Every structure is written in structure tokens, then in C-alpha cells.
Amino acid sequence: KYTPEEIEKLKELRIKHGNDWATIGAALGRSASSVKDRCR
């Protein structure tokens, strides 16, 4: 489950890194597949 803060951070990282899920996941301390599924 993602907190509202994590979702905000995810949005920012998505703008910065696009679909680089590995980088976004690492920044959030989550797996690449987890953040990818969250963005769907």
C-alpha cells in the first residue's frame, strides 16, 4: 500500500525519469514491478 506522500513522490519521479521503473523503484525503496503496477 502506498501512502499519499509516496504517491506524490512517485508522480515527481515519473516526470523526472519517465518509465525508468528501476530508478523510480530504487528511489522509493520499492521494486520496479511494484511502482510500474501502481502507475497503471
Score class of each variant (00 low, 15 high):
S34A: 10
D37E: 15
S31K: 03
A27N: 09
A32I: 08
L13W: 11
G25Y: 00
R14W: 12
G25D: 05
I24S: 04
S34W: 09
C39V: 07
L10M: 02
A26P: 05
P4L: 12
E5F: 06
K11D: 09
D37K: 15
A26I: 04
A27R: 09
A27L: 11
E6L: 03
G29I: 00
K11C: 07
T3P: 07
L28Q: 06
T23R: 13
A27Y: 03
R14C: 07
S33R: 13
R14M: 14
Y2I: 08
I7E: 15
G29M: 01
E5K: 00
G25S: 08
S34T: 05
W21F: 10
T3D: 02
H17D: 06
R30K: 14
T23C: 10
I24Y: 01
R14G: 02
Y2N: 07
G25K: 01
G18D: 11
N19Q: 12
K11A: 12
V35M: 01
V35D: 07
E5V: 09
R38N: 13
D37A: 15
R30G: 07
W21Q: 06
A32K: 03
Y2P: 04
K11F: 06
K16P: 03
L28I: 10
C39N: 02
K11Y: 08
K9R: 12
E6A: 06
K11T: 13
P4D: 11
W21Y: 12
S33M: 06
K16Q: 13
I15K: 14
D37S: 14
A32E: 14
L10Y: 03
G18F: 03
E6C: 00
G29H: 08
D37L: 11
H17Y: 12
E6F: 00
A22G: 08
E6W: 00
C39T: 08
A22Y: 02
L10E: 02
I15T: 14
A32Q: 07
E12L: 13
T3N: 11
D20K: 01
I15Q: 14
Y2E: 03
G18H: 05
H17C: 01
R14F: 09
E5Q: 10
R38S: 13
W21P: 09
A26G: 09
K36Y: 08
T23K: 13
L10Q: 02
P4N: 09
I7F: 01
K1T: 11
K11W: 04
P4V: 13
R40S: 15
P4Q: 15
I7R: 07
L28G: 05
S34M: 05
P4K: 14
R38K: 13
P4W: 10
A26V: 08
H17M: 04
K9L: 11
V35W: 00
C39I: 05
A26M: 05
G25A: 14
E8F: 07
G18S: 05
G18Q: 08
T3Q: 07
K36V: 06
Y2C: 02
G29D: 02
K16E: 10
C39Y: 09
T23S: 13
A32C: 03
E8P: 02
S34P: 04
V35K: 00
A26E: 13
Y2V: 11
S34L: 03
D20I: 02
S33Y: 05
K9S: 13
T23L: 11
E8M: 10
K11M: 04
E8R: 09
Y2L: 06
N19L: 04
C39W: 13
T3W: 00
T23D: 04
E8G: 08
I7Y: 09
K11L: 10
I7D: 15
W21M: 05
S31C: 09
K36E: 15
K9E: 10
L28D: 06
A22E: 08
R14D: 01
C39K: 01
A22C: 06
K9W: 00
R30A: 07
I7A: 10
K1C: 14
S31N: 07
E8D: 12
D20E: 05
L10N: 03
S34Q: 11
A22M: 07
R14L: 13
L28A: 05
A27V: 12
K1F: 14
T23A: 15
S34I: 02
R40W: 11
N19V: 06
T23H: 06
C39D: 07
R40C: 14
H17P: 01
A26N: 10
E5I: 05
